[in-house]
C-alpha cells in the first residue's frame, strides 16, 4: 500500500511540530524517519497511525483519504516505544487482542486465533512463551511480543516508534536484523522512527530526515550519506569535519585549511567526512594528537595549524606508521559545500 502524506501541519501548544511535511511511502518499503528529538518524527508517525490528527494537510492510504479516520479504522500495526503491552494479559492474550476484539461476524474462530498466535510467536522466535506475562519477559522479548501483537491483525502498514530505544546495545543489534528478516518475510510496508542514524542507515530501504518539523531529505541510505541535501543532513548523518569559511578563486579557505573546490565565490560552510581526508604532499597541515586503531581503520584526532580539531580515518596502508606529534599534510577527496549555517 502506498502512503501519501501531503503538506501535513501540526501545532502543539506553543511550537509547531510539523510544518508542511510531504512524503510518499512505497508499497513493501522499509522507511526510517530519522531526526533529533523534537524534530517531529514521532508526531508524523502518530499522524499516520491515527493517534494524532493534523491541523492541515492530508494523509492517504492508496487513494483513500484517511486524515481524520480513527486509528481503529486504519488497520495499522503500531509498536510503541515502551511497548504498551497489556500488563494483565499473557503474551498469547496480548497477541490475540486485535483479533479478539473484532465483532463476532468478523472474528476468526478460537482455534484459528490460537493458530495465528502460535504462528506469530514462531515468527518472532518466542515459541513456548505464550503463557508468560509481560513482567516475566526481558526487554528484548517484550519488544518481540509488541511486534507480534502489531502484526496479528495483518496490518497494511507497520509503524514502530523508536523500536529499539529502550534496549541495550547488543540486543538492539540482533533485533535490528530480526526486524529486517520479519519485514522480508511479511512484506508489509514498514515505517520506523529513530534518532540513531546508524540504525536508520543499516536497516532502512529509504531514510527521511526530519529537522524542526520539516523533512530535509528523503533518499536511500547511500544517497543521504553521499549526497546530503542540506548542511543539517550532512552533519546529522555520519561523522563530519565542519569548516566555516569562504570560497575565492576555486579554493575554499578556513583558517589554515585550504581545499580545492569547484564553486562560485562567497562565504560557505564545508563538510568533509573523516574518511574523505587523504594524505597529500601539497595539502594543509594537521598535527596528530591521538591515534586509535579500530580494526582495518585508523582513527586520528588532529589539530590544524589554525588550531581547529579535526578527525581523520585512514586505512592501515594509507596511515603507514604514523604517531602522535607527527604532522600530516591532508587534502579532501570529497567536499560538501553549503551556504553558511549557524
Amino acid at each position: 500500500m502506498t502512503i501519501s502524506i501531503r503538506s501535513v501541519e501540526k501545532q502543539f501548544a506553543r511550537y509547531p511540530a510539523l510544518r508542511g511535511v510531504s512524503l510518499e511511502v512505497q508499497p513493501g518499503e522499509l522507511l526510517a524517519l530519522l531526526g533529533p528529538s523534537g524534530s517531529g518524527k514521532t508526531t508524523l508517525l502518530r499522524i499516520i497511525a491515527g493517534l494524532e490528527f493534523p491541523e492541515a494537510g492530508q494523509v492517504a492510504f492508496d487513494d483513500q483519504d484517511v486524515t481524520f479516520a480513527s486509528a481503529a479504522a486504519r488497520k495499522v500495526g503500531f509498536v510503541f516505544q515502551q511497548y504498551a503491552l497489556f500488563r494483565h494479559m499473557t503474551v498469547a492474550k496480548n497477541i490475540a487482542f486485535g483479533l479478539d476484539v473484532r465483532k463476532a461476524k468478523d472474528r476468526p474462530a478460537r482455534a484459528e486465533i490460537n493458530r495465528r498466535v502460535e504462528e506469530l510467536l514462531g515468527l518472532v522466535e518466542l515459541g513456548g512463551l505464550g503463557g508468560r506475562y509481560p513482567a516475566q519477559l526481558s526487554g528484548g522479548q517484550r519488544q518481540r511480543v509488541a511486534l507480534a501483537r502489531a502484526l496479528a491483525v495483518s496490518p497494511q502498514v507497520l509503524l514502530l516508534d523508536e523500536p529499539f530505544g529502550a534496549l541495550d546495545a547488543t540486543v538492539r543489534k540482533s533485533l535490528r536484523k530480526e526486524l529486517r528478516r520479519i519485514h522480508n518475510a511479511t512484506g508489509v510496508t514498514t515505517i520506523f522512527v529513530t534518532h540513531d542514524q546508524e540504525e536508520a542507515l543499516d536497516l532502512a530501504d529509504r531514510v527521511a530526515i526530519l529537522n524542526q518539523g520539516s523533512i530535509e531529505q528523503v533518499g536511500t541510505p547511500q544517497e543521504v550519506y553521499d549526497q546530503p541535501a542540506s548542511a543539517f543532513v550532512c552533519s546529522f548523518v555520519g561523522e563530519t569535519n565542519r569548516f566555516d569559511g569562504a570560497v575565492s578563486g576555486g579554493r575554499f579557505v578556513c583558517g589554515s585549511v585550504s581545499l580545492a573546490v569547484d564553486c562560485a565565490d562567497g562565504p560557505k560552510t564545508a563538510f568533509v567526512r573523516p574518511h574523505d581526508l587523504v594524505v597529500a604532499p601539497d595539502g594543509f597541515e594537521a598535527q596528530i594528537v591521538r591515534v586509535t586503531a579500530q580494526g582495518p581503520v585508523i582513527q586520528i584526532e588532529a589539530h590544524t595549524a589554525s588550531d581547529q580539531p579535526i578527525e581523520i580515518s585512514l586505512s592501515r596502508q594509507e596511515a603507514g606508521s604514523i604517531a602522535v606529534g607527527q604532522t600530516l599534510r591532508l587534502a579532501a577527496r570529497k567536499i560538501h559545500l553549503f551556504d553558511p549555517v549557524d
Binding site: A49, A72, R74, K75, Q82, F86, F97, V101, V153
Partner: peptide, 25 residues
C-alpha cells in the same frame, strides 16, 4: 495512554478498551 492507544490501533472500540484494557489496570 499507551495501552489505550495500542488497543485503539488494534481496532478496539471505546467500551471494549475501557472494559478489557483500562479496568484491569
Amino acid at each position: 495512554v499507551d495501552e489505550e492507544e495500542a488497543a485503539a490501533s488494534m481496532g478496539a472500540g471505546g467500551w471494549t478498551t475501557l472494559w478489557r484494557v483500562t479496568t484491569p489496570n
